[in-house]
Design a protein around this nucleic acid. Structure first.
Lengths: 243, 243
DNA sequence: ATTGACCGATTGTCCGACAATATGTCAATA
DNA sequence: TATTGACATATTGTCGGACAATCGGTCAAT
């Protein structure tokens, strides 16, 4: 190698990305608050000194992240990124990385018992009632595979929501998209309805009586059941999950 | 209400979003594999029957999610979404949701001990060596706040990486971006270097000797120290984290 | 109070154009 | 032979202008 100079590689960022970053910064720095209307496309384009086409590409970049949306199908507005929207990006990334059932289950073992524990301290009376209503439905649907799966999914979502912890909700979003749906196959194969209902009841009662240890413990047992179910049904615990 | 008909609200998706979804589906369904080159913009535009401008907007949508990138600044190529790229979206979403330090800490309490446990079973010899090297550096930097913070961050990242669990890595990405950086303020305020190094040593040795319980326990103690540090330094445990 | 007609503003989409850059070929040269 | 230079080609990034569809508001007619 002729050691002549070694210049820094100059990074020529395309304009649409620069513009996108400027807007993103204005939003995350609080300069633009949630709900604020943005100027029209033509106006924005003028401000940045680019064409509307270029500006629109910048907008798309932000739109995907949920940072901006449409107020009424016309004007652009600063929006709060929704958990499920971000969650879908994460899930599709995991799909491409061929994340296995085991990997998701391991994360679930960390987050779901934690959610149950935190729900004890933070669940409102309203949330507790809805949780119990969900359990009632699951008891009646104990032999209806499809209905039971929906109850199961809703149960875990409600427990997580009752923690009032947005970081936790975001972290477990991929479980919703990838893990529990696949659990449906187990339900169809093994009909473990009774076992699910019992576990849910223990978690529910622990939350109602504000007993974090009990809630976490039964959620953990519940997740262990999941794993055994997958193994017994021979669904490939080490296989990548499918979308 | 005049119960006349009750039509379904028709959702008129803009073309750029439809095109984007089509491409996304082709990718996640495996029709297009990672590393595949996409046709040129003009060609794609023809295939979908839209203009290049519209197609480009669709591309931007995917580009942000890390699903496609540029091979050599020209041709488009299907890429694997990087953990940190997706993680940044999640982090900026959390910032906007004003996630508190407590919320992040609660998630960390669920994930970090889990990571330590899993690292025991899955860490390669190489990874163990690098972990020990990191600990050596942290011991020497025990009074250098900046260097210690970097070691601290790297330590937790290496432990997480040693789990070889991509779902876990993705779930804890926001901790990297939001939680540990703020921890720097604690280090500067309290100089808890010695305490950090001791905790790291216990985790490290537990991993080296393949003792999951011990690894998880010490990581948990370590995280408890975090919380107390934040409280003692009066940094506002219940305050939203800042970017 | 509802309906209908109208207008301006704004977005979604299209078309055509050009400069800058990367790729490939081929000849000239040391 | 390996490097350089010259040239043609392909592709992206950006531009400017254009138009239909639709939303919001106003105002008159019913």
């Amino acid at each position: 190698m002729s050691r002549a100079q070694n210049f820094a590689k100059l990074d020529h960022q395309p304009a649409y990305r620069v513009v996108s970053e400027k807007i993103r910064h204005a939003i995350t720095s609080g300069e633009l608050a949630t709900g604020d209307l943005l100027p029209t496309e033509t106006e924005l384009a003028e401000q940045f000194g680019v064409t509307r086409s270029t500006l629109r590409e910048a907008i798309r970049l932000l739109e995907h992240g949920g940072l901006i949306g449409r107020a009424d199908r016309k004007r652009l507005v600063v929006t709060l990124p929704q958990t499920d929207q971000i969650g879908r990006s994460v899930s599709s990334a995991m799909l491409m990385h061929k994340v296995t059932f085991r990997e998701l289950w391991e994360v679930a073992m960390g987050l779901e018992p934690l959610a149950a524990r935190l729900a004890c301290a933070n669940a409102s009376d309203q949330e507790k009632r809805e949780l119990r209503a969900n359990w009632q439905r699951s008891r009646e649907a104990v032999d209806d595979h499809q209905a039971l799966l929906e109850c199961e999914l809703e149960f875990h979502n409600r427990v997580a929501a009752a923690t009032h912890n947005h970081a936790l909700l975001q972290a477990r979003a991929p479980l919703n998209d990838l893990f529990y749906p696949a659990w449906g196959a187990v339900i169809r194969a093994l009909s473990p309805g009774e076992r699910i209902v019992v576990a849910h009841r223990h978690v529910l009662e622990a939350i109602e009586s504000n007993n974090p240890d009990q809630a976490g413990l039964w959620m953990q047992k519940h997740m262990e059941d999941f794993r055994r179910g997958i193994e017994i049904a021979e669904l490939g615990f080490e296989q990548p999950v499918t979308g």
